[in-house]
Design a protein around this nucleic acid. Structure first.
Lengths: 161, 161
DNA sequence: TAGTCGGACGCAAGAATCTTTCGTGTGGGC
DNA sequence: GCCCACACGAAAGATTCTTGCGTCCGACTA
């Protein structure tokens, strides 16, 4: 967990490499090298540098929730009562600590938090709401959107170059 | 791209392996084997089987958007006018085809679509709204939520076992 | 201009990992 | 009781990752 976050400068080689790794990080360095006109060791050094700088945050397998019994994806907008720093931080920590909460954003607008939740059943979701929202005095209101189709899901970032 | 989607049965070994790969798919099979009490080839066979079945959908590097100049994450709820199958499909295809759209869900509730968008600047977002929402006759209304903090971001699925 | 230094490269060797093959053991069905 | 399908582990082979080394290019300095 050594996040230097040195904010290094990326050239077009780095961006091309990222573009490949974003889609398939099992691509051999030799193949990446051929794609960007660089040797395999050069590719490897650049990848390591970007990992150390925190530009590459993780290397993960994407699992299809439906095939492991987690069939329901839900969006929730949460509105809080008091927006003091302490209460917001507490909410952030609480939401982030729940395994079913896949994503949590603190936002501006008509809501304060947006959550992406993945659960096996509606019953499980209901239990979660009771614990997370009704059991939290600072939650004023929340709105639920049940996903009928995960049209596009990814963390891929559109890169220049 | 061979998605058999045979819906194979997963035992607790598979789930443990998925749990590891979800967090770090660069973990050597030997290490995974030690963690789940299996030999490296057995782990490898199970991983390949899950990839072929589509349970493991992809292996990707997670890139920090902020460090590649994509500093703004935005949520958008989109409400359409007509919800015929053709128009919905057209919208799905259009949203999914935009690189800046990281995620797109078709949902029930007060909105029809929820999008997660990552852009470098507000100007870029404005241009995107003009093209994607104002330029689409079937979009009735859309609401924007700008993320101030990406509290938790991932695709990790909470697995039983 | 000449000299020095840092950084990144490619090549090649070594280390580690992945992948396949093969023989064995176990459980279900005939 | 026998056979077959399936998954396993061990070991060998193939591929990939990683490191060491010499070279090259650009920047900075005298």
């Amino acid at each position: 967990m050594s996040k230097s976050s040195s904010s290094i400068i990326l050239d077009s080689f780095d961006l091309s490499i990222l573009n490949i790794l974003q889609r398939d990080n099992m691509t051999p360095q030799r193949v990446i090298g051929e794609a960007v006109s660089l040797s395999a060791p050069a590719v490897q050094r650049r990848i390591r540098r970007m990992e150390e700088a925190g530009i590459i945050q993780a290397n993960v397998a994407v699992v299809d929730p439906a095939q492991v019994g987690q069939t329901i994806t839900i969006f929730v907008e949460v509105e809080v009562i008091s927006e003091t720093a302490e209460l917001i931080d507490a909410a952030k920590r609480e939401f982030a600590s729940v395994p079913e909460v896949q994503q949590c954003y603190y936002v501006t607008g008509e809501a304060d938090f947006v959550l992406v939740i993945v659960v096996p059943t509606m019953t499980a979701y209901e239990a979660l709401t009771r614990r997370l929202f009704f059991g939290n005095n600072n939650v004023k209101r929340f709105r639920t959107f049940v996903a009928m189709d995960r049209v596009k899901v990814g963390l891929t970032v559109s890169l220049p170059g």
